[in-house]
Design a protein around this nucleic acid. Sequence first.
DNA 1: AATATATACATAAGATTTTTATGTATGTAA
DNA 2: TTACATACATAAAAATCTTATGTATATATT
Lengths: 112, 112
Amino acid sequence: MSNSKLYKGSLITIILKLLSENDKMYGYEITQKVKALTKGELNITEGALYPALHKLEADGVLEVEVTKVDNRLRKYYKLTEKGTTETANKLSELQKYIETMQALVNSKTRLA
Amino acid sequence: MSNSKLYKGSLITIILKLLSENDKMYGYEITQKVKALTKGELNITEGALYPALHKLEADGVLEVEVTKVDNRLRKYYKLTEKGTTETANKLSELQKYIETMQALVNSKTRLA
DNA sequence: AATATATACATAAGATTTTTATGTATGTAA
DNA sequence: TTACATACATAAAAATCTTATGTATATATT
């Protein structure tokens, strides 16, 4: 990531969402996909991404499958069953966060 | 703040927004106001709030006015001119963030 | 009278997440 | 042969937050 501080805390949600729609993806692919989908608005850094993937794997949310393409290493990640549940949770959390923030931003908060 | 990690990075935006609608507020009042507006969803902790207010003051975004009410100390904060500009920036960043995340969440991201 | 809760400030230690800086290695374009 | 893209990785530092603690006054409860 390298952006508005608001992106802090969103990385896991983004990864899981992408994996819920693409049944397997590798790290570099995720960075490129996010850059494309957000028109360059959001750039995930490797220093944030790889540790996050490792943690998700360690937590049993993702499983990995190492392959070699063009003599180059690739680690494909996919959601486990637990990962699918976790994705739903993270997405509903995001929805709730957005609603809460919209409420704060849109409301007149002046005292009566 | 509270539970969902998504709130990380949002505190400054929330403070500034509240102060843009209430011309002066003190710390404790901000915590109560946010709790009420979010129906308990978001609880700003003192350990996060006070350092944030101090930083905003040091940055010239807020100015402080110390008073005594019922023999108890109160530090009222209000936006400076710089703070008003900063508020507009933070709010448009939030709007942009929400749009970006909505795009990520709602779009089908599968490869063609 | 004593205790708990609310009001009101503050800071320090630790946890978590991210940026920035590096490092390795291969393939391709200039 | 130099630069850029692909593809992984980690470590130091920065940023932000939680948890814990501290001070002090006012009010409500037991």
